[in-house]
């Protein structure tokens, strides 16, 4: 039984990180109807930049964290401006492929700059395990969960209570009506790409000490997408719940089936969900206009 709780807790921790990157997918999808295949690369870039700031430039952790998020956020905004905005009226397929191309460029550029070397992010919090009610935890995992939940919460509050956040939400729900209310769609989209790229970077930095940093680590970002699909892609709470669920399912699968098959299970789950109930477990059908 303790083992079950153990799996549940570490799954939840994974889930909180998935939620962070998953929300980035959801934000972009809701306003531009595009799934951003470069989201995983933003995550990878976030981790690598933070490592560079922290280890090579010897910046304090907090500064490295914020600096990396801001840099990646700016890159997201830049890409929106030069690559995605010109394609705003293009078919969805074209836009999806554009994000694929951008992802590939980032990935290979990183490989050119620093090779395929594997690096480790030094843990910020101690990794000495302690036990609470039969469940083994480390300060690192607890700290990571708290930070990512804090970031998810901050984003939700930002959208809910700030004027700019409301504008983003309005533009996502009804582009014309938002424009007529005075929301600039172009600015909103720019901001959306920036925010979701920064979120991915944050997720990358937080997840980095738990895994290794490679140019291909972006694949883990797609787990955020799967989690969001699992919960229901169109609502923010549904997506968050789905990401937590995915983290738990993966950990269960990793333990009871095999570690290597973890990813197979999550993509298998994606196929299953898409076939059986594409609106997600906690989501609802996209409103259709007659």
């Amino acid at each position: 039984m303790d083992l079950f709780w153990q799996i549940l807790v570490s799954g939840g921790m994974l889930g909180s990180l998935y939620a962070l990157v998953g929300l980035g997918f959801v934000l972009i999808y809701r306003s531009t109807r595009v799934v951003n295949f470069s989201q995983g690369e933003m995550l990878m870039l976030g981790a690598i930049l933070a490592l560079y700031f922290y280890q090579d430039l010897k910046l304090p952790y907090g500064l490295a964290f914020v600096g990396s998020c801001v840099t990646v956020g700016l890159l997201g905004a830049f890409l929106e401006r030069v690559a995605f905005r010109p394609l705003q009226r293009a078919p969805v397929i074209t836009l999806i492929l554009a994000t694929v191309a951008v992802g590939q460029m980032i990935r290979s550029a990183v490989r050119i700059v620093r090779g395929s070397e594997v690096s480790h992010f030094p843990p910020l919090f101690p990794t000495t395990p302690f036990t609470v009610g039969g469940v083994t935890l480390t300060a690192l995992t607890v700290g990571t969960v708290i930070l990512s939940i804090f970031l998810v919460g901050a984003l939700v509050l930002f959208i809910r209570y700030t004027r700019i956040g409301r504008g983003m939400e309005a533009a996502a729900q009804n582009r014309d009506a938002a424009t007529l209310s005075g929301v600039s769609i172009n600015q909103t989209f720019l901001l959306t790409w920036a925010v979701s790229s920064a979120l991915a970077a944050a997720a990358g930095i937080l997840i980095a000490p738990l895994i290794v940093i490679t140019p291909d680590m972006g694949i883990i970002g797609l787990k955020g997408f799967i989690g969001a699909i699992l919960g229901g892609f169109l609502t923010i709470p549904g997506a968050i719940a789905g990401c937590f669920l995915l983290g738990i399912i993966e950990n269960l699968a990793g333990y009871y089936i095999s570690g290597a098959m973890k990813d197979v299970v999550s993509f298998g789950l994606l196929l299953l969900i898409l076939i059986a109930c594409p609106q997600g477990l906690f989501g609802r059908q996209e409103a259709r206009r007659a």
């Binding site: 295949f37 969805v92 397929i93 699909i229």
Partner: peptide, 18 residues
């Protein structure tokens, strides 16, 4: 059959990955 290009792109991607 039932899904838009968005999901199909992800399904085919996931397939290749798996």
């Amino acid at each position: 059959l039932r899904l838009g290009p968005l999901y199909v792109s992800m399904v085919t991607f996931g397939f290749g990955f798996v």
